[in-house]
Design a protein around this nucleic acid. Structure first.
Lengths: 202, 202
DNA sequence: GGACTGACAGATTTCAATATCTGTCAGCCG
DNA sequence: CGGCTGACAGATATTGAAATCTGTCAGTCC
């Protein structure tokens, strides 16, 4: 009302609407109503509803990325850092799933229909993984001939603990044991691992 | 018509109906129609539609279990056997997903709503994994202080390549590379792995 | 008598009419 | 002019009435 309408204000309002109604019920008209403008105005800033939803999710993911940024300053081994980072990711995902279920559901919708957003998210986090693994390679704690492929493999091997499709399993009382076992196995693998052509290692 | 109605005949007819219509459309009336009996007769053999669907799925899974039975006779290392077994599982799941999409979808429905059937399936296959790993431990190729927990960890780490929720990703052209990398990492981990209390290893 | 039927009640699904939403754009208003 | 409005067309979602389905059971038929 007072100020001119900014993209940022629309994003804030959209996030609020998504939080309240969820991805299935939230409409562009709701967002416009929350802002006290006509829905036509929203379309001056975002070409489609999908673009708006993507922008909100990207904002949300960016915050996750910042929070997950690994810290190399404490005197931890690479294995400790890796385990802590994976645990933090798991804890944050679990929390987000129960704490902001509608935003989480919004991301799940995007995972199912868009390709770009999940790729953006995964690439970023696999990049963080690669940095941790790279640090471990430098100290000779880990062995690999392809850090990026290995980081991707660690990501894939821990899919069950971060992929939103598995969120319902995160309430299982034994899930932490499963997590510990997989992470231990992965860390053991990193201590001596090569990415072979399929037959090379087995 | 000619013979008395058997549970087996109902299962065969139900599988056919499920194959044709899928889990969302298939009805008990359809099954009865296919058998030329009234739907009341079907209920003399199976108490509910869910029980019928479960019985069909269990039959189907049992066939998978038999097909996946590992063979220890050829002169393969445990790592080779493990990789081959995981590859076979992956290939069979992929094939089943495109070849019998409705039965696959039926199993997916069961995964989401029932608890018992997927547990039955997973426990059986993890048992097969445990036998392969156990063979590797005996030849000192693998190291672990808890074969069953490790087998479960291998199962969990390869979730992306057998959990039906990930089936849509199996068409990705790079999925085989991802599979190879995860399996290599896991096999490397098995060469020296312990299941610690969470802090013990990291 | 025991396998089977078919009518039935309540639950679920389907379908079509209605309402709402998305995205556009000519025109308004400051 | 430049951001905004609000009416509009086509697409999507909601609704409620009708149809179908699930599960039961008294009764039929061999």
């Amino acid at each position: 009302m007072a100020e001119t309408l900014t993209s940022e204000a629309i994003l804030v309002a959209t996030e609020e609407v998504l939080r309240r109604y969820g991805p299935a019920k939230a409409t562009v008209v709701d967002v416009a109503k929350a802002l006290g403008v006509s829905h036509g105005s929203v379309y001056r800033h975002f070409p489609t509803k999908a673009a708006l939803r993507e922008a909100v999710t990207r904002r949300w993911l960016d915050a996750q990325h910042v929070a997950m940024e690994p810290t190399f300053d404490q005197g931890l081994t690479a294995a400790e850092m890796l385990r802590a980072w994976l645990q933090k990711l798991f804890d944050r995902k679990k929390l987000s799933h129960v704490d902001e279920p509608e935003l989480f559901a919004t991301y799940l919708v995007l995972v199912r229909e868009s390709r770009a957003i999940p790729e953006y998210h995964v690439e970023h986090l696999v990049g963080q993984l690669a940095r941790i693994i790279s640090a471990g390679v430098e100290t000779h704690e880990f062995v690999t001939d392809d850090v990026n492929a290995t980081a991707q493999a660690v990501w894939d091997a821990t899919d069950r603990f971060h992929h939103p499709a598995h969120a319902q399993e995160w309430g299982d009382p034994h899930i932490q044991d499963a997590f510990d076992a997989v992470v231990s196995l992965v860390i053991a693998g990193l201590r001596y691992n090569r990415i072979p052509s399929a037959a090379g290692d087995a």
